[in-house]
Design a protein around this nucleic acid. Structure first.
Length: 244
DNA sequence: AACTTTGTTAGCAA
DNA sequence: CTTGCTAACAAAGT
């Protein structure tokens, strides 16, 4: 169940199969397994929450959506949820309850890789331009917009807004320059904190706002509210997060 | 046991 | 044809 950082961990787990040949394919998402068998997994590339398994002449796009999961080597989950399984000589990869689509390699050229907040080529200036182009958008929606902050999900949204002291229903066009910059930089910084804490199983322990009862700064109760066009839950402090 | 949820998209109305 | 909204869908944890 994945936001961007969790997908990065998945990529690490799958990297042992890069350069290896697909010996066998299974699962409900790919009707014609022959398209995959015999192909080499050339590279794994991420775009936010999307994973591209790049083969010789096509690629597989995997999105775990809300409830998807994966396993390496051993299948412990039921076949009915199995969307894709790939066998290599050194092990197997299983993907459950997710979106799996076989696509032409051309699709890779259409992706704005610089929009991925965890990418080496993340482009904060470009994000700023996109935000300025939508000055009426609420910040809670802006952070979840995968065209602007690819990889950010609801947890990252809430923690970033708490860290920078901005109310989720603030409008991007009203943010002072310093807050706008903080929004953009913290989206990346928190994502890497998420990655670090997720890896050592202490993610929940570090939540300051998401699903928390009281504000760690002032001790008052946090507000929980469905916000913005995205209609996702926001957890925030009315005192310490300013509405712009 | 009912409710929630780390997300997206098909489908339809305007 | 585009924009915007809602419903649908998924499965595991609380």
């Amino acid at each position: 169940m994945p936001e961007g950082p969790s997908i990065l961990l998945m990529k690490d787990n799958l990297s042992q199969f890069v350069g290896k040949k697909v010996l066998e394919a299974a699962g409900s998402s790919i009707p014609d397994k022959k398209q995959l068998v015999g192909k080499i997994l050339k590279e794994i590339r991420l775009y936010g929450k999307q994973t591209y398994l790049i083969l010789d002449d096509c690629c597989i796009r995997i999105h775990l959506l809300m409830f998807g999961s994966y396993e390496v080597d051993e299948q412990t989950k039921p076949d009915k949820n199995l969307r894709l399984a790939l066998s290599f000589k050194n092990g197997k990869a299983y993907f459950y309850t997710c979106s799996v689509k076989l696509l032409p390699l051309d699709i890779l050229k259409t992706i704005d890789w610089e929009a991925d907040v965890m990418s080496d080529i993340w482009n904060p200036e470009k994000a700023k331009q996109k935000l300025k182009a939508s000055p009426d958008m609420m910040v809670c929606d802006a952070l979840l917009d995968q065209e602007i902050f690819s990889g950010v999900g609801n947890i990252i949204k809430n923690e970033v807004l708490f860290r920078i002291g901005v109310h989720p229903e603030s409008v991007t066009g009203h943010l002072p320059a310093a807050k706008l910059n903080a929004l953009i930089s913290e989206a990346r910084i928190y994502s890497f904190d998420f990655l670090k804490w997720k890896s050592n199983n202490t993610l929940k322990k570090h939540w300051q706002a998401y699903h928390q009862k009281t504000c760690p700064i002032c001790g008052k109760p946090l507000t929980s509210k469905i916000t913005g066009k995205s209609k996702r839950n926001s957890f925030f402090c009315e005192t310490d997060q300013k509405l712009y």
